[in-house]
Amino acid sequence: MVRRVLSLASGRISVVILAAIALLAIFGPLLAPQDPLATSSDTLAGVSGSHWLGTDYLGRDVFSRLLDGSRASVVGALEVALMALVVGAIPGILSVYLGRVFEWVTLRLADTLIALPFLLFAVAVTALLGNGITQAMFVTGALVSPLFYRVARAATLAVARSQYVEAALISGASLGWVIRRHVWVKVLPPIAVALAQTLGTGFIIVSSLSFLGIGVQPPAPTWGGLLASDLGYLSYQPWAPFAPALLIMATVWASNLLADAIRDVSGEAGRALFADRKTRQPVGGAV
């Protein structure tokens, strides 16, 4: 699968960008040239040798804040995605197979989560579990999980009713075999697309939560938080939101590109066998 994704130009480009962002997340805080929290009287400064991206309204170095915030942003977005995958996609697949009770309960839960007012839910969870980045990610993940649940469930349903699954069952396949061989390949691409979308929303949600004082606490920077505060000073520094926006966009775009690449190659899953004599056949004959 990985090799096939990399064989596509879009796959390679997206992996390179995502790798760069991952490096940024790992090493970014160490590379920050200045203290990202140190204020100065030099507020809303323009681009200069000492401040590569200028300073914000408290005189903090924007470049350092951007680097320092990358870890919290990326980790936050990943946590959201992982959470959504675990509490959304997996129950979504299983809801088709684990019987009516499980199906009914999870369906109602998903409906309930959609209906919950987001901020109220976030505040309630913080009150219950305490404040922290993990709790914030839990809230966000739970919030987007119905999307994953529904996407995974719909894809699984389509496969579960198919004749080829029935054919596999007639040959003696177990539930595990059916999910591994037939279901997973079809559920993965739509989930990957949903994941890519969620990464984008994740940045925004993380920042709007930190605006409320939930999750990442205000002086600590995140990309979304930077974007939000930059927008408030648009009349002084119209170019300022550009840098965090570019990073967010690059991440979202690259993950979308990767999702597309996964979708494109997943149609060829299983081609690996007989690869020794494989000469790519022209696609034709489809009715």
Partner: peptide
């Protein structure tokens, strides 16, 4: 068409 998994090769 429907009884063969569209994502599996004929071999698989």
């Amino acid at each position: 068409l429907r009884s063969l998994d569209p994502d599996l090769t004929i071999a698989d």
